[in-house]
Simulated assay, not measured.
Amino acid sequence: MNHTSAAVAAAATFVWLGMVLAISFLEAPLKFRAPGVTVPIGLGIGRLVFRALNAAEAVLAAVVIGTVVIAAVVIGSPPTIVVVLTAVAAAVLVIQLVLVRPPLNRRSDRVLAGEDPARTRSRAHLWYVALEIVKVLSLAALGWVLQAV
């Protein structure tokens, strides 16, 4: 990778990291503490926010992957650690979108339809959070490695 491609990938990586940290670890838990926000209202807001976050993540992942692939084709292979960390972050996002979000959406559908939130507990939320932690760690490491390239 050359300096320019590494800088573009690093910038996209750090924007992606910042968005995940701000939404998943700041906005999501805080919204339920705001006065007057019920579980159904919080879930409705959360669905909209996470749909937008995931769309932005997909775009940023495409930028990072595209930059790494273009650098590999045009300039030569990027460091293995860059490829591995990019793959981990992208794979986690895909797992979240394909395997974890559907059960979360079904649960929120039931709560929004009037079912008691306490009766619709799901382990999917714990999986989502665990995957967010893996994604944050891989993005932080990827951004750091890209700055050193």
Rank of each mutant, 00 (worst) to 15 (best):
A12W: 03
T13W: 08
V15W: 04
V15P: 03
L17K: 00
G18D: 12
M19G: 15
M19A: 14
M19W: 12
A22Y: 04
A22C: 10
S24D: 13
L26K: 08
L26Y: 13
L26P: 00
L26Q: 13
E27D: 13
E27A: 15
E27V: 15
A28T: 09
P29S: 07
L30D: 07
L30N: 08
K31V: 05
R33G: 15
R33Q: 14
R33A: 14
A34E: 10
P35W: 10
P35Q: 14
G36C: 07
G36F: 01
V37I: 14
T38Y: 03
V39T: 11
I41T: 11
I41C: 05
I41H: 05
G42Q: 07
G42D: 04
L43H: 13
G44T: 09
G44F: 01
G44L: 03
G46H: 06
R47Q: 14
R47C: 10
R47D: 15
V49M: 14
V49Q: 13
F50A: 12
R51P: 07
R51L: 13
A52E: 09
A52W: 06
A52V: 10
L53S: 07
N54H: 14
N54P: 01
E57Q: 15
A58I: 08
L60W: 07
L60V: 03
A61K: 08
A61M: 06
A61H: 00
A62I: 06
A62Y: 02
V63R: 07
V63L: 09
V63F: 06
V64F: 02
V64Q: 05
I65F: 10
T67M: 00
V69W: 05
I70V: 15
I70H: 12
I70T: 13
A71Y: 03
A71H: 01
A72C: 06
V73C: 01
V74C: 04
G76L: 11
G76M: 11
S77C: 09
S77T: 13
S77E: 11
P78G: 12
I81M: 00
I81H: 02
V82F: 01
V82W: 04
V83A: 13
V84F: 06
A90F: 11
A91Q: 02
V94M: 02
Q96Y: 05
Q96S: 07
L97H: 09
L99Y: 11
R101Y: 11
P102N: 06
N105C: 06
R106W: 10
R106T: 13
R107K: 11
S108D: 15
S108C: 07
S108V: 04
D109V: 12
D109L: 10
G114S: 09
G114Q: 09
P117I: 01
A118K: 12
R119S: 15
R119P: 04
T120V: 15
R121F: 03
S122H: 00
S122Q: 02
R123S: 14
R123G: 15
A124M: 02
H125P: 08
H125M: 03
H125A: 06
L126F: 02
Y128M: 02
Y128C: 02
V129E: 12
A130V: 00
A130K: 02
L131G: 01
L131Q: 01
E132G: 04
I133N: 06
V134I: 10
V134W: 00
K135P: 11
V136L: 14
L137M: 13
L139P: 08
L139G: 09
A141H: 08
A141E: 11
L142E: 07
L142N: 05
L142C: 02
L142A: 00
G143S: 00
G143P: 05
